[in-house]
């Protein structure tokens, strides 16, 4: 038995195809991105090694910092909204009729492509015919904003469809985790006189904390690398007011053909995502994770 299940040839046969694909398409390119970032290169001519000059330029590039700021703002807001999703999931996992149906309805936008969502919300925000301004006008508003053309509100306007897209996803994850809690634990607390608030905060929340940690990482990393919807809706505009790290990288590399500088941004994005994952894990670490199953 031992011998059969540690047959090296079989292990190699089973693991190598997927592993080589992962290394070739994900890991080798990251290393190359790191290397290209140390060069001045337009993708066609010769590469010139320039050391850390791209990164020096990055540090003093105001547009880069504002786009990084936008990405971090999205990450922060997405994390804050997790509390709302948890509240909804806590309610849904109680004795709510139709909870199954509701959580499915909440999930629907997440199944659609970001491009379709972006195109749809372009219409929602349309200055003259969109439903949003139509609603405002019917409420008596005299001047309605041009949501995506005004630098002061464009980020907020982009964040709403992102919420719309992902709310159901997080509610579903929390709901599944809360449903996993054995009823005996919450019943015991109730018999001891705990009210719903206390049960939710003192019993349920600590029990699903491992899942909360995962979702914080997902929300932060997902926001940091967010791209599709912004690319389609505003392309970083107006005047780079809604540029994020990924869209800035894309513009530098594939519009201006500055592969060296684009790679430096791409590598920075990678470091930020991995660092964010590590920091969140450290900050949310509990000494002894609670086991209940």
């Amino acid at each position: 038995m031992e011998k059969v299940m540690s047959n090296k040839g079989v292990i190699a046969l089973y693991v190598l195809p997927a592993l080589l694909l992962l290394l070739g398409v994900v890991y080798v390119p990251i290393v190359l991105t790191g290397y290209y970032g140390l060069n001045d290169w337009d993708g066609i001519g010769r590469m010139t090694f320039i050391g850390l000059r791209n990164y020096e330029r990055l540090l003093s590039d105001d547009v880069f910092w504002s786009s990084a700021g936008h990405s971090f703002l999205f990450a922060l807001l997405s994390t804050v909204f997790l509390a709302l999703y948890m509240a909804v999931a806590l309610v849904l996992s109680g004795r709510i009729k139709g909870a199954q149906l509701l959580r499915k309805i909440y999930l629907i936008p997440m199944l659609l492509s970001s491009v379709a969502i972006a195109q749809l919300w372009l219409k929602v925000y349309h200055p003259t015919n969109g439903i949003l301004n139509g609603l405002l006008e019917s409420l008596g508003a005299e001047e309605t904003p041009d949501w995506l053309a005004d630098p002061a509100i464009v980020l907020g306007a982009l964040f709403v469809p992102i919420l719309w897209q992902y709310a159901g996803f997080y509610i579903l994850i929390y709901y599944a985790a809360l449903k996993n809690i054995p009823a005996s634990l919450t019943e015991a607390a109730r018999i001891d006189g705990a009210n719903s608030w206390q049960v939710a905060l003192r019993i349920k929340l600590p029990l699903v904390w491992e899942v909360v940690k995962v979702t914080i990482v997902l929300a932060v990393v997902g926001s940091l690398k967010y791209f599709d919807l912004i690319y389609v809706m505003t392309d970083g505009g107006p005047n780079q007011a809604s540029e994020v790290m990924a869209s800035y990288m894309y513009h530098k590399a594939f519009r201006e053909f500055n592969y060296g500088y684009g790679s430096a941004i791409g590598f920075f994005l990678l470091i930020v995502c991995l660092a964010a994952t590590w920091i969140i894990r450290r900050l949310t670490a509990t000494k002894d994770p609670i086991q209940y199953s």
């Binding site: 390119p29 990251i30 991105t33 791209f227 590399a253 990678l270």
Partner: peptide, 19 residues
């Protein structure tokens, strides 16, 4: 390696993959 793979942004691989 597989689990960390989930955290890697597509954009950090895009230029080398294209080339």
């Amino acid at each position: 390696l597989f689990m960390i793979g989930m955290m890697i942004p597509v954009h950090s691989t895009l230029i080398p993959l294209f080339l």
